[in-house]
Computed example of a mutant assay.
Amino acid sequence: MTTDHKDPLMNRRRFLVASTQLALGLCLTNPGELFAKYTSTVPVLKDDKKRAPKPIILVNTHTQEEFQLRYFGKSCPPTIKRDLYSFLRDYRTGDVHPIDFRLMDILYAIQRKTGSKGVYEVISGYRSPKTNAMLRSKSGGVARNSLHLKGQAIDVRLSDLSTRQLRDVAKSLKAGGVGYYAQADFVHIDTGKVRVW
């Protein structure tokens, strides 16, 4: 994305972002509502500036916890980050780790590109060294230096798309790694180098 100050669309975009941030600052009445950043890490869809963002709804398949994340502006309050980190914790050990918010950018872009109104079913977020070692001992498909260990990967399904469709859309974004696990019925998405397996 270019940042040419002479581009009227970029000036309009900055104005809309600033207006939204100001409106949120003045009108936020429910401190429990979830907001997060939306950056230019992944392709911005043409209609992003026309429609109000819908929340990303995440459900942890192991704990049945639900987390809703709505995009407004470019910043995320620390309390929301902490809540997300806790939600995507290693459920086996309870360990919490910072999560790369570019993962949320990717999930949001998938949702917008497909028009999905579904729920992301989270199989794995952060993974502690202890859990990663245990999973490696049971499967050759678990990397020693998995990006799950750095909070840079998430394994998901999307309730109203097949995992094959989810994989294809994630691949098309070219925003990081995409792994397709057909038998286990989930897609691995990470913020590392663009690669597919």
Rank of each mutant, 00 (worst) to 15 (best):
Q68Y: 02
S75E: 10
I99M: 02
K74I: 10
F87N: 07
Y85M: 04
T63K: 01
S75W: 04
D100M: 12
K81D: 00
D83F: 01
I106L: 06
K74Y: 01
Y108F: 12
D100V: 13
R102S: 15
H97E: 12
F87H: 07
R92V: 09
I110E: 10
D83W: 00
P53R: 07
T61Y: 01
Y91Q: 09
P78I: 11
Q68G: 07
R92P: 00
E66R: 12
I106M: 13
I56C: 03
P53Y: 04
G73Q: 07
L103G: 00
N60L: 02
T61K: 10
V59G: 05
K81F: 04
P55G: 03
D100W: 09
H97W: 11
R70M: 13
P77V: 05
Q64N: 11
N60H: 12
D90C: 08
M104Q: 09
G73V: 10
G94R: 00
E66F: 00
E66H: 02
L69V: 14
D83Q: 11
L88V: 01
R92I: 08
L58Y: 03
L88H: 06
S75N: 05
I110T: 13
F101Y: 14
G94F: 02
L107S: 05
S75P: 01
Y71G: 11
I57M: 05
D100R: 06
D83Y: 01
D105A: 05
L88A: 08
R70N: 13
K81V: 08
S75A: 10
H97N: 14
Y108M: 12
F72R: 07
I56N: 01
K74E: 15
S75G: 03
T61E: 13
D105F: 02
Q68T: 15
D100P: 12
H62A: 14
Q68M: 06
M104T: 15
L107R: 07
L58F: 06
I99F: 02
G73I: 09
V59N: 10
D90S: 05
I80W: 00
R82D: 13
E65M: 03
D100H: 10
V59D: 06
P78H: 09
Y71P: 04
G73P: 07
H97P: 06
Y71H: 10
P55D: 09
I106F: 05
Y85F: 11
K74C: 03
P78A: 11
A109I: 12
P78V: 11
L88Y: 07
I99K: 04
S75Y: 06
F101T: 07
G73M: 08
F72G: 04
D90K: 04
T79H: 03
D100K: 08
D105I: 02
Q68P: 01
Q64L: 10
D83S: 10
P77T: 07
T61C: 11
L88G: 05
V96K: 06
I106Q: 15
R82C: 08
Y71A: 15
T93D: 09
L107P: 03
S75R: 06
C76D: 03
I57S: 09
I57H: 10
V96F: 01
T63F: 00
Q68C: 09
K54T: 15
D95A: 06
Y85C: 08
A109R: 14
T63V: 06
P55S: 13
Y85N: 13
N60M: 05
H62K: 12
L107H: 08
I80R: 02
H97M: 14
L84N: 06
E66T: 14
L107W: 05
R82K: 13
